[in-house]
C-alpha cells in the first residue's frame, strides 16, 4: 500500500483513502463538436502509458474528496510529487535529481 501526500490536506496518508483517476492534464475540449472524429478519439482513448514519471490524477475520496494531480514513477511505483488540480505540470528536474 502506497503513501500519498494530499496537496489539499497537506498530509501524507495511506492509499486506502484515495482512488486513482486516470492520466492527468487531459483537458476536456471547450467545444467538442468542433473536433474531428480522430481528435475526439484521441481525447477519449489515447493515453501516454509511460515507463517512468507519469502524470496522473487521484482523488482523496475518503478524505477531503478533492481530485489532485501526481507524478508517479511507473518503474519504482514511487510518487515524485503531488499538486493541486489546475496547477501546471511541475518541473521534474529537482525531483529526478533527488531520486
Amino acid at each position: 500500500m502506497l503513501l500519498i501526500h494530499c496537496p489539499y490536506c497537506e498530509e501524507t496518508l495511506p492509499e486506502a483513502e484515495f482512488a486513482y483517476a486516470g492520466e492527468a492534464h487531459i483537458d476536456r475540449p471547450a467545444d467538442p463538436s468542433a473536433l474531428s472524429d480522430e481528435e475526439w478519439r484521441d481525447y477519449l482513448f489515447i493515453r501516454s502509458n509511460v515507463k517512468g514519471p507519469h502524470f496522473e490524477r487521484w482523488r482523496h475520496v475518503h478524505g477531503c474528496a478533492r481530485f489532485f494531480n501526481a507524478v508517479r514513477d511507473t518503474v519504482s511505483d514511487k510518487f515524485m510529487t503531488t499538486y493541486k488540480a489546475g496547477d501546471p505540470r511541475p518541473d521534474l528536474t529537482a525531483e529526478e535529481a533527488a531520486q
Binding site: D27, R59, A65, R66, A85, G86
Partner: peptide, 13 residues
C-alpha cells in the same frame, strides 16, 4: 457522484 465531482472540480471549477 464521483463523476459529477470530477467534472465540477477539474473541468468546470
Amino acid at each position: 457522484l464521483n463523476m459529477m465531482e470530477d467534472y465540477l472540480q477539474t473541468e468546470w471549477p
